[in-house]
Each structure stands twice: as structure tokens, then as C-alpha cells.
Design a protein around this nucleic acid. Structure first.
Lengths: 224, 224
DNA sequence: TCGATTTTGGACTATATAGTCCAAAATTGC
DNA sequence: GCAATTTTGGACTATATAGTCCAAAATCGA
């Protein structure tokens, strides 16, 4: 081999991720990325290929970095509700305390990325699925400890928690108000109370039979 | 007066909103806006001032347009849970049926807008607050009808529902899977069951006392 | 030391972008 | 019809952008 790299690609990726996270994909320029990573354009392109490719890798990186944190928070020697409550509280603290208010990178990407960008959305989906899995594993353990009803639908609860956390952080970005976020978290936690976590077999599942067209205007011919 | 306008500003605003909604703020160019509205640059600028200003007005427009829809859905002669269930189902249908998968415009803006953009975030916040108010009013009526416990904390429930819907739609953008979204909706609805909606006075409220630093890395010196 | 190989800085390109400007067109009151 | 007034199309500007390219520098094996 010849001349070695003067930078650490992992470190550069972390810094790039931070920028994408803080500013969003479109609003991040290559100059921003060069400045944040300390790399020149040639090194950036040689290492990561393109801005878009760097985003994809940043998403993966984010997931790698955050999943263990969440897993650790849920593995604390606490009743699962208390562990989740603490996790919610930490997010809320981060949000209301100001500077770190960037939301969840996965959520930001999901919101910003155009829906025709299959590859990128797949990465985001994988990340969300991993979060969901982390929640589910913790719930399974909690159920085994007797904290949830034996019939608790932990898969559904995990999905719900994933969406709930996303909702909390998204709302928090626009409305970093402790009272509001506390209400959301408090109510969310109630869904974990033991009596709510039994399966309810005669309850209709979702889908298939809704008629009235409400919500938001659907049409518009798929703006390019 | 002299020469009259050849276009309808309201109509143009609607079209502009659609583009922002579909593509996001940064990814929408003035050419996109001109094409969608049919206006020339001069007319656009004379009418709306700037791209950013047009976004702000689009947000307001979106809120004006969607609030009555939600209000109407919640005012249907149904138990509140059924009305909300139907609303969730409609959103899910829209998401999984494909083309309309743009998420909520407010959520998209909250995710994309930089947090230093006070004015824009305030508009978004107002929109979310209005949604919350719509939920709350419906819940108050439901409580008066005896569908919720007299002590139900309808304000907290409304905030929770606002975040929950945001979470559902955000997750749906990355993962338009009926099973996943159905689980989220199903679990969310459980929080509305009568027995869950009583105030629980000795339960600790949120905030103030969380210690471990988990979640996602907070630092980074406020990337410009 | 030398040739081979890789990295690096930064100049460069081609394009896209938000916003400006003005002459021509359209309309009004008279 | 005419002067006044407003709108309109689109040319124009200045800048920012993603990505390319290459000569110089740095390192390695021999």
C-alpha cells in the first residue's frame, strides 16, 4: 500500500450524521459536510461515494449508535413501566432543555425523504423495526417477570411505543413544552398498565372497512 | 383600479401547499411552485412575498383545511372511540393505499424546519394546538355523554392523541404496512377505554427528576 | 533512494436556485 | 380613445450547489 488516510472514516461518518441530523438532508451542503468532517471533497467522495450515499450510511450509523442506548435503558433493573417512564423523561428533558432539539434522525428522514426514494426509506424502516424489536424484547422479559398479563400482545405494544416515541419527539420539536409532553408521556404509559395489556380476542382488528373520506385531501397527481 | 389578476390567490395557495406538502420545503423550487400554481415569478412574489412566506401561509392554509375535517369526523353520531377508530382507519387506508403517503404536513414541517426558525415553528405549533383543541372538544362532549369517566383528563388525552396520530403517520411514511399501523391504532385506542381515563391523583407527573443520560447523543455545538 | 500507489487540497464545471426587474399587455375611469 | 395603474412573462443576476479532476504530497516496499 501507499499513503495512508489522514482521517478516521468512522469519526467522519459520525460527524456527517450529526450534520444531517441537525439540518436535514436537503439543507446540508457538501461544504457543511466537509467542514464538519474535516475532509476535502476528494476524500469524502472517495470514502462515501456521494452525498446521498453518505446519508444512507449515516442512517445506519444512527441506528447502530442509538439502539444499544435504548436497549440499555430498558434493561435497567426496574419494572418495565418505570424504565420506559424514565426513558420518556429523558427525552422530554432533552427536548425542553433546548439545544438538542433535533427530534429523532429516523423520524426526520421519514418525514423529509420523498416517498419514491425506496432505498432510503428502507433504511429508515429497518431502523424503526430495530427500535420496535428492542421494545419488544424488553416487553417479553417484563411479561416473563409477571409485569404484563401473560396474554399481552407485546408485538403490538412495541409498535405502539415506537410510534408513540416518534410522536412525542415530533411534537416536541414544534412545541417543547414540558406540560404538553408530560401529558403525552403520562397517557402513553397508561397503555402499559397490566389490565390493558391482555389480548382482547373479540375486538375487531384494524383495516378493510372504512368508508367516509375524511382526513386530508388525498388527490394530487403525484407531484414529481 | 386597473388590470385585474388573472388568477385566484386562494387556489394558487392551495396548489403551493400541495407541493410543499409533497416535496418538503427545501426540495421545492420556485420553478416547482410556478408550475404548480400557474403563476409567473412576478405574480408569485407580488402575492406571497417570498418562498418562505408562502410556506408560512401554506401551513396556515393546511390547518384551515384539515381542522374542519377532523372536527367533522369526531362529531359523527358515534361513540367517541368508534369515531376515532374510524379516523385512524381512514388514515391507515390512505397510507397503505399508496399515492397519498405524504404524512401530515404539520409533522413534515416540524421535522424539516430548523429549530432556529421561530416563526415557522410557531405556525406549526399553532396548528398542532388546534388539532389538540379539536380532539379535546370532542372528548369533552363524549365525557358529557358518559363515555368517559367524569374525572377523565381530556386535555392530556387530546395531547396524547395528537402525538399518537403524528406518530402513526410518521411511521406509516417509512413503513406503510397495515399490520404494523393496525397494531399502533389498536393499542392507541385502548387508552381511551373508560377505565383508563380516570385521573389518578397520586401518580407522579412528569419531569424534573430523571438522571441517567440515555437516548441519543445530546452535544454537538449547535451546527449552524 | 526510487518507483509505485494512494491520498489530498482545491480549482473547476455545469447547473440550479431564490429573487429582481422592466417592458409590454390588460384593464379602469374619464 | 386616452392616461393612469396594475399585472404579467420572462430575461436576468448573483450565488450556491453536487460532483469532477488533477497535480502535488505522502507513504510504502524494495
Amino acid at each position: 500500500m501507499a499513503r495512508p488516510r489522514e482521517f478516521d472514516a468512522e469519526f467522519a461518518l459520525d460527524r456527517a450524521m450529526e450534520v444531517f441530523w441537525a439540518k436535514g438532508y436537503e439543507a446540508t451542503s457538501l461544504d457543511d459536510l466537509c467542514e464538519a468532517t474535516g475532509l476535502s471533497r476528494s476524500s469524502l467522495y472517495a470514502t462515501f461515494g456521494s452525498k446521498r450515499n453518505l446519508l444512507l450510511q449515516s442512517v445506519d450509523r444512527y441506528v447502530e449508535r442509538r439502539t444499544p442506548n435504548i436497549a440499555a435503558a430498558l434493561a435497567r433493573p426496574l419494572p418495565i413501566r418505570d424504565a420506559i417512564s424514565a426513558l420518556l423523561g429523558e427525552f422530554i428533558d432533552q427536548i425542553v432543555s433546548g439545544p438538542g432539539r433535533r427530534g429523532c434522525f429516523l423520524g426526520n428522514c421519514a418525514a423529509e425523504l420523498p416517498r419514491h426514494d425506496r432505498a432510503a426509506l428502507a433504511r429508515v424502516r429497518q431502523g424503526l423495526t430495530r427500535t420496535e424489536g428492542t421494545f419488544r424484547e424488553a416487553l417479553v422479559r417484563a411479561r416473563a417477570r409477571g409485569e404484563l398479563a401473560p396474554s399481552a400482545d407485546v408485538a403490538a405494544l412495541a409498535r405502539f411505543l415506537t410510534a408513540g416515541f416518534q410522536g412525542l419527539r415530533l411534537v416536541g420539536k414544534a412545541n417543547p413544552d414540558r406540560a404538553v409532553l408530560g401529558d403525552i408521556a403520562k397517557t402513553l404509559l397508561r397503555c402499559l398498565e397490566e389490565r390493558n395489556c391482555r389480548r382482547n380476542p373479540h375486538k375487531r382488528e384494524f383495516g378493510h372497512d372504512h368508508q367516509t373520506s375524511t382526513a386530508c385531501t388525498p388527490p394530487e397527481s403525484e407531484a414529481a
